[in-house]
């Protein structure tokens, strides 16, 4: 039932070109059977101001997170979220969103925890679609509900917990926050003081690669050669490495997780969603301050 892949030459250079579609591909396939387009934004109202025709909204904060426990929703709730949006287990889901697809990749990562097979990102996201003058609508989408099976999350393959990270010390870590957060000068992301920590700095040994370095001016992902230059040549990571990426609550690092896993073909990348809001508030975990990586 899956839709054909986008054969665009820029995408073809990536390790897993089937994980991306271009705006041209999406415009040509809108409304196709077996396709659901999901908008996932930082701003909870942005979808309502206008969205890609027929697309549905998934809000990272109010829908993908459990409202009580700091965790993602369970299999039963996930099945409801998908079902009411017309997403079946075989559906091709294309995610797009604001801010260089930051939240779109986060939603894709959560869908991946539930093993949803055919997930893709609209390269360039909302910004590129709008910049190209493509159709947007405020008309409410009315998806035909689908049956989605209750599938339990797999938290062992692409997700890391604090204990996993403690056991991982000495192996490659990527800190995708801003340089000020990495060095410890800032206890929160610039402009986000509400998600603070009582200690500043980074996990020992972590490389500092702010997540948005992977995005080009037009919000698309940089070409493969440019990404290799950053993560492989400059930072010395290798696709054979066992890598953990983190940020503040695990959203920016899901963008880097996507880049390393699907665009560069790294075999084992986990996203530590506890990230700095857990690590920087934990008792007696090792922390390095300053701009050097430090050692465990």
């Amino acid at each position: 039932m899956a839709l054909q892949n986008d054969t665009d030459p820029k995408l073809a250079a990536y390790a897993h070109p089937e994980r991306l579609v271009t705006t041209e591909w999406l415009a040509a396939n809108l409304g196709a059977d077996g396709l659901v387009v999901v908008e996932s934004d930082e701003d909870v109202l942005l979808y309502e101001t206008g969205h890609i025709p027929g697309s549905v909204k998934v809000d990272w904060h109010t829908e993908l997170n459990d409202p009580v426990t700091r965790d993602y929703v369970d299999g039963a709730r996930f099945a409801e979220i998908c079902g009411e949006r017309g997403i079946g287990r075989d559906t091709t889901v294309v995610f797009y969103g604001d801010r260089n697809n930051w939240w779109a990749t986060y939603a894709l990562w959560v869908f991946s925890l539930f093993g949803h097979a055919d997930v893709r990102i609209l390269d360039g996201g909302r910004a590129k679609w709008v910049a190209e003058g493509r159709e947007m609508t405020t008309e409410q989408s009315k998806p035909t509900p689908a049956q989605y099976p209750v599938v339990e999350r797999d938290d062992t393959t692409i997700r890391a917990f604090k204990d996993d990270v403690l056991a991982h010390l000495g192996k490659p870590l990527v800190d995708v926050r801003s340089p000020g957060e990495y060095s410890g000068e800032l206890l929160h992301m610039p402009d986000y003081p509400q998600e603070g920590a009582v200690r500043g700095g980074h996990i020992p040994g972590a490389a500092s690669v702010p997540w948005a370095r992977a995005a080009a001016e037009d919000a698309t992902f940089k070409p493969r050669a440019d990404l290799e230059a950053i993560y492989q040549q400059e930072q010395g990571l290798s696709p054979a490495d066992d890598v953990v990426a983190y940020c503040r609550i695990g959203e920016r690092s899901s963008h880097t997780w996507f880049v390393l896993t699907h665009l560069l073909g790294f075999g084992k990348v986990r996203n530590y969603d506890g990230s700095w809001t857990e690590w920087g508030n934990s008792v007696r975990v090792p922390i390095v301050q300053g701009s050097e990586r430090g050692t465990a």
């Binding site: 701003d43 909870v44 109202l45 942005l46 309502e48 101001t49 604001d98």
Partner: peptide, 9 residues
């Protein structure tokens, strides 16, 4: 900015 409707609200 218009891309920030929640903040505008």
């Amino acid at each position: 900015p218009p891309e920030a409707p929640t903040t505008r609200g």
